[in-house]
Amino acid sequence: MPRAIRGVLVECDPSIKSIIMKIDSEDHAFVVEDLDDGTLVIKENMLSILKMRLDEALKETQQPPSDSGSD
């Protein structure tokens, strides 16, 4: 008998996925099923928290290019 698991399917780049896996490795609170390089299923109620944590992680690694030109 097949099983059905409730969750949110997340599709993203492999690089983003590895960051998500790193966030998850701390307390395993997010990921339900690791599907492939760019897809995974996470818990439904954790989506917004994961988005927040991902934004934080990206802010540390990325330097937004400043706008050129004057107003």
């Binding site: 097949p2 099983r3 698991i5 409730r6 969750g7 993203c12 990206l58």
Partner: peptide
């Protein structure tokens, strides 16, 4: 848009 999220159900363990 770093990730695309779709709520739903995962089906697995087919015989």
């Amino acid at each position: 848009e770093r990730m695309k999220a779709t709520p739903g159900f995962l089906f697995k363990d087919f015989e």
